[in-house]
Write a protein that binds this DNA or RNA. Structure first.
Lengths: 163, 163
DNA sequence: TATTGTTATACTCTATAACTATA
DNA sequence: TATAGTTATAGAGTATAACAATA
């Protein structure tokens, strides 16, 4: 019916959703999240749980609140997520002697193993999704997304790497 | 306590969430969506509604199902979204004489006005978010995100533009 | 009085299934 | 029998507020 030119995009103001950066971000996140969730759950934890496991990997001791702020999780979300992970034996909550209000989440050996296993699965998904991109394109993507996701720190660490 | 080198990122496998492409996408989408939602709601419709309005702008007549597939919305989500928009007088559902099962959503004049007003607001947000990026960086971002968000079409329309 | 963490509550988004009316 | 759309329901994700223990 409209093979000729397929409409010239309504008043030169873009074609709709494809020019909508917010939509692009949400769709991309939705698709990638769904693909990863499938693989992660088979390996014993959701992507939310894996995110927390990975954040705990570096050995920094931090309160639940600090961990939530770092990952963009509400403290109530943090509680329920850690509840499930503690039941699964992936983490423990260690009380802090210097401040008896706080609890420091820490990886268990099982948590470390599950993190590593899931990480391999997720890397495969990520690699498949990024296939065909040049090294530079991927670098730009990561750098810009980091700016959008963690705005205040992008200027603080100009080197780009995490040291 | 650890000013020296701030930990060398746990076994060279990345610093955690900042190397997690899925997390970057979700955080970026979450932050941008929140910023846009605030501005959009003041102008009379949510970002979800504005997305639908914009998709209807081009005048293509399409069923609710087709519209939902295009935007990545479930048909049940589509129904409730259109319900609200029809109550607000932003769209009408026109029955299709050739197939009396389907209903074709169409913009009203008010819908067109609200779309334009909200669009101006959202463009300001988008511009603020992208501030500081080079033209090329923004182009790469949009192109790559489009590939992740709408994979099958990225190869079908090599020109990049939407004609 | 302020803060950490928990619980309760609610609202949105998403997905599934059941239902209708058409085809 | 299959499809478009609606409705009902349930599950996550997210946010707010109230609360207990502690600072």
């Amino acid at each position: 019916m409209e093979t000729e030119q397929q409409h010239v995009c309504a008043a030169a103001q873009g074609c709709g959703e494809r020019d909508n950066l917010n939509w692009l971000l949400h769709r991309a996140a939705q698709r990638m999240g769904a693909a990863m969730e499938r693989h992660a759950v088979e390996a014993g934890v959701g992507i939310r749980g894996h995110l927390v496991l990975t954040a705990l990997l570096d050995g920094h001791q931090q309160t639940q609140l600090a961990l939530g702020n770092r990952l963009g999780l509400d403290k109530t979300t943090m509680t329920s997520t850690l509840d499930r992970m503690e039941q699964q034996g992936l983490i423990v909550r260690r009380p802090d002697p210097s401040d008896r209000r706080v609890r420091i989440p820490e990886l268990t050996e099982k948590g470390r193993q599950v993190q590593a296993a899931v990480r391999l699965e997720l890397e495969l998904v990520e690699r498949a999704v990024l296939e065909g991109l040049s090294t530079e394109e991927e670098a730009v993507l990561r750098r810009v997304l980091l700016r959008l996701a963690v705005p205040e720190e992008s200027g603080a660490s100009p080197g780009g790497s995490c040291v």
